[in-house]
């Protein structure tokens, strides 16, 4: 319905919505600090474990373990073959095996019909 005063149609009254009240949340900072401290502690433990020399496990009590003594390892060197150089002699009681001289391969040159001429 037109307004009698300015000739403009009357505007509908604005709808007022209720403003939602923000939900109260707990302060995250203490928890973040706690997480940070935890991560820091874990990282410190890992670095310490990697960097420190290995130690025997300890349960907190001092324990002495006596391991049985192992015999000293013995290495037996077995010499099966000695290739004597010219002028050398074999040790006493050594079995001397004479290596046959390799048969030289004869260089055979073959005459044939040529593949092509110069």
């Amino acid at each position: 319905m037109p307004d009698a005063q300015d000739g403009q149609p009357a505007r509908p009254a604005p709808i007022t919505r209720p403003v939602p009240t923000p939900k109260a949340r707990p302060d995250p900072r203490p928890l973040r600090i706690a997480y940070g401290m935890g991560l820091l502690a874990a990282a410190t433990a890992i670095v310490t474990a990697l960097a420190s020399p290995p130690t025997t496990a300890s349960t907190g009590q001092t324990a002495t373990v006596t391991l049985p003594a192992e015999p000293a390892p013995s290495v037996r060197h077995v010499i099966q073959y000695i290739q004597l150089q010219p002028g050398q002699t074999a040790p006493p009681n050594a079995a001397v095996k004479v290596v046959p001289t390799p048969k030289p391969r004869v260089v055979v040159v073959t005459t044939r019909q040529s593949g092509a001429k110069p």
Binding site: V109, T110, T111
Partner: peptide, 14 residues
């Protein structure tokens, strides 16, 4: 010195 005479019927033989 040894020399071969190639056999043209079979490659690689003398």
């Amino acid at each position: 010195w040894r020399f071969g005479v190639a056999d043209p019927r079979t490659m690689g033989t003398d």
